[in-house]
Design a protein around this nucleic acid. Structure first.
Length: 548
RNA sequence: GCCCCCAUCGUCUAGUGGCCUAGGAUAUCUGGUUCUCAGCCAGAGGACAGGGGUUCGACUCCCCUUGGGGGUACCA
């Protein structure tokens, strides 16, 4: 057994949040740095929020990031009821825990009352006679179990904050350890499981700072060793708001409402086009508290013409779908709150592991600014060997199955990646090269591009395109060097800059003013398809009139 | 309301009493390169929240104010 054991203990509520990913990463780095163990546990004691699908998604994200856990058998808290119950029975028999019967409403009233007196509400044990208990039970109340918190000062040393955190005796209160539905609360399960799993170090979010007093009191009552605690600062949005999984849903909701207003379409049109059950979108739009699941979100987005890149990236899965490399995300996340010291920033996973140290973790909250992540990703992609990029592209396509690039073979992907070198994300590669894989007749010409490049200046662009169609037809072999030579010769002849000639070809083959370098693009597209697209473009543009 | 944590360029951060006229990254701006987008190259501007102490000397230590964040659940 290694002498340092960390763990990551998420609740399965869907794809992994970047905040959770960072917590996992720090625990993983700490374990790896010391040659210790990193364990995974699923905290699914909230029956309403936990689903099996969510759990699968969570594990998928951790695997994608490369954060491997060491326990082949995952620990699910929901399957450990018997263990918890036995320990709770022991506490009750020792007088360290007891049943309490107040309803939620009664407790709320007490809290409000305390607040009106400008103090905080603390639950302390009230003595109940057997007669009282019979009466409460007769009323049909199901008790919770509360732990008898010792009324004394509690303190622990926080490894991240670098100081002792103290709770004075008069803040002690008896907290719930078993809910009325029989499930343990988080506070109880976390303490028991960490002890049984041999956890020695716990890095977790700062929202748990004050819970730690409950946990150490429980550890003392149960004779467990106290792990080292470190509370991590929280990751915020750039505007200072909390980064929430709901931001995604909110944004889709807002865009859908705008779309409905603008297009004048009915809600059920969205439902039928997206092939969702009738009423689902209607109910979702009517109720702010509702959320669509991932697949349904995508379906709605397709109908209202919303692109993935318009969504706030909150989940690890969002970054995967938008074409970031996992190692880049890890590097960036690590630097959100941790610094190895000095000016070192770009690090491989190995370097991070080597240098990781809890004392280098910052104490203040950090805002999640994407532009720096983008820069990291650009650099990492530029530095990555081509086969790494092909693998990453395959992975990207596996979570973007609608992309026409799924039809490309590995050699083609490698070629695209090389043509687009300097790209920022794999999504950018996808968006700027998908025209290669779309049937010629499905190329849409961007009206602005057609106007600017082909029609403006008395149709010089169109004229050039017509000439080039004939010139390109003569080029052999169909390779970028030969193509370049032919086109440049034409430029010289006509006293034209290359830009005046390349752009019309670009619009003709890609439908827009953006593509990989033009001669390589022509080579990739092939002679026949290039000439077909030029013809089609000429015909289409003529059909719209205004031809010189 | 009550309790707790935190505070360096827009953002992420380096800095642990003199090395700081505060370093890096990113973003921004200006120039250059290029067939588009991106990239690349060169340069510029930009921060120690405020006020008190302590000290020969404070970005660094202490206190207060302000600001930000968290908790205050039979959620985790």
């Amino acid at each position: 057994m290694p002498d340092l054991i960390t763990r990551f203990a998420p609740s399965p509520t869907g794809y992994l949040h970047v905040g959770g990913a960072r917590t996992a990463l720090f625990n993983w780095l700490l374990a790896r740095h010391h040659g210790g163990g990193f364990l995974l546990r699923i905290e699914d004691t909230d029956r309403l929020r936990s689903t099996e699908e969510a759990c699968t998604q969570l594990l998928e994200d951790l695997r994608w990031l490369g954060l491997r856990w060491d326990n082949p058998q995952l620990v699910y808290q929901s399957r450990r009821r018997a263990t918890y119950d036995a320990i709770i029975a022991g506490l009750i028999s020792r007088g360290l825990a007891y049943e309490a019967y107040e309803s939620t409403e009664e407790l709320d009233a007490l809290r409000r009352q305390a607040e009106s007196q400008k103090r905080s509400f603390l639950y302390r044990r009230r003595t109940l006679t057997p007669v009282d208990i019979d009466k409460l039970r007769a009323e049909g109340r199901t008790p919770v179990v509360r732990f008898v918190m010792p009324v004394e000062e509690q303190r622990f040393a926080d490894a991240v904050l670098g100081k002792e955190i103290v709770m004075p005796a008069d803040e002690a209160q008896d907290f719930v350890i078993r809910k009325a539905d029989g499930m343990p609360t988080y506070h109880f399960a976390v303490v028991v499981d960490d002890a049984e799993m041999g956890t020695t170090h716990i890095l977790r979010g700062q929202e748990h700072l004050k819970n730690t007093f409950y946990h150490i009191a429980l550890q003392e009552a149960l004779g467990y060793a106290r792990p080292t605690y470190g509370h991590l600062p929280i990751i915020m949005n750039v505007d200072g708001s909390k980064m929430s999984k709901r931001d995604r849903d909110k944004k889709i909701r807002r865009t859908a409402q705008e779309w409905l207003k603008k297009s004048g379409a009915k809600v059920d049109a969205i439902e039928s086009t997206a092939s969702l059950p009738p009423g689902q979108v209607t109910e979702w739009l009517a109720d702010d508290a509702r959320q669509l699941d991932f697949a349904d979100q995508s379906a709605v987005m397709r109908v209202i013409g919303m692109r993935e890149s318009e969504l706030p990236e909150i989940l690890v899965h969002d970054f995967r779908r938008n074409g970031y490399l996992p190692e880049t995300l890890l590097n960036f996340l690590a630097l959100l709150g941790w610094s190895p010291g000095g000016n070192l920033e770009r690090m491989s996973v190995e370097e991070m592991t080597q240098r990781f140290d809890v004392s280098g973790i910052g104490k203040g909250n950090a805002k999640f600014a994407r532009d720096k992540l983008l820069a990291f990703n650009t650099e990492a992609c530029a530095a990555a060997p081509i086969d790494r990029l092909v693998t990453a592209m395959r992975d990207f396509l596996s979570v973007n199955p609608d992309s026409p690039l799924t039809r490309a073979d590995d050699a083609q992907l490698a070629c695209l990646l090389q043509m687009k070198k300097g790209f920022r994300t794999l999504r950018e590669v996808e968006e700027t090269t998908r025209f290669f894989f779309i049937p010629d007749e499905q190329i849409n010409y961007d009206p602005d591009a057609v106007e600017k490049v082909l029609k403006r200046n008395d149709g010089h662009g169109l004229a050039a395109l017509r000439d080039l169609g004939d010139i390109l037809a003569q080029v052999s072999p169909w390779e970028h060097a030969a193509l370049e030579a032919a086109v440049k010769q034409y430029c010289e002849q006509k006293q034209l800059g290359l830009g005046k000639v390349a752009q019309p070809i670009r619009v003709a083959i890609a439908g827009s003013t953006i593509s990989p370098p033009i001669f390589e693009s022509l080579e990739f597209l092939g002679k026949q398809r290039t000439l077909q697209r030029i013809d089609r473009c000429l015909v289409n543009t003529h059909a719209q009139g205004k031809i010189p």
